[in-house]
Amino acid sequence: MDYTKQIQDIAGRLFSENKIDVFIGYRNTGFDENQVPVLINQYKDVDQLLFTDKSVFNLANYLKYEHTRNKRVGLVVKGCDSRALNLMLTEKQVKRENLYVVGIACKGVVDETGEMAQNCIECVMPDAVIFDEMLGTPSGRREYQENADVRELDGKTLTERQEYFEEVFESCIRCNACRHSCPLCYCAKCCIDQETATLFQGANTTSSAFHALMTWSLHLAGRCVDCRNCEKACPSHLPLHLLHKQNEKVIYGNFQEHLAGMIEEDRGAFYKYSLSDPDDFIM
């Protein structure tokens, strides 16, 4: 999967036709094989752009910052990224007419060991669902699979799960990299930013981490697109996907197989209901 040439051409064309002000893509870090997001403002920089199976970060995240607000933006989206973009559009965070979207028919990106990332193995929609231009041959929607780690934990006893998660929350340093890296966490004042929320705890304790991560994952339930920006951002390497995938599993299983951001104008699972939703857990 290497679309470097095509993306440079597209970005060059967009700049020379004066269709965009910023292009968001990937560049090499300059010191290792990995890639980092780059915001390009002028034609002469487009040759920095790259796209390979190391283009991991979900670029839709940059649509929430001052650098792109009210500007005409070109960006590259893989399948998962495009679902996040779809939701951002539906939730009126960006204007479609300001965007030029280069969709990728994704073949999966790699994790730090060089193997295909777990979310790519389980990916339900590798092709961009929203695009102005598509690169590669779409391979179509795939079967939903339950996350293997969630299933494994589910098989354990309550006490084992509790011990496991205590360690998770204890290891969280409350840096908020997870929330800031998530494209769907665009609230200017987030309820897990300790400084703004009066209900929230200021100290970086385990208790506060529990509070923050649980609330955060529930605010993303039915919206999370499993791009794993959050998890890759976490300096403590915490398995944040467990929380999101657990929610996704419950939502998929109980609410008409809902998956976030798959179709335009589809808000998250919590923004609609069905009369036949499960009720048996309520007295």
Binding site: V38, N61, I173, C175, N176, A233, P235
Partner: peptide, 12 residues
Amino acid sequence: ANCVSCNTCAFV
């Protein structure tokens, strides 16, 4: 420009 304004760099 690509910084996401988290706290990570200072915390670690």
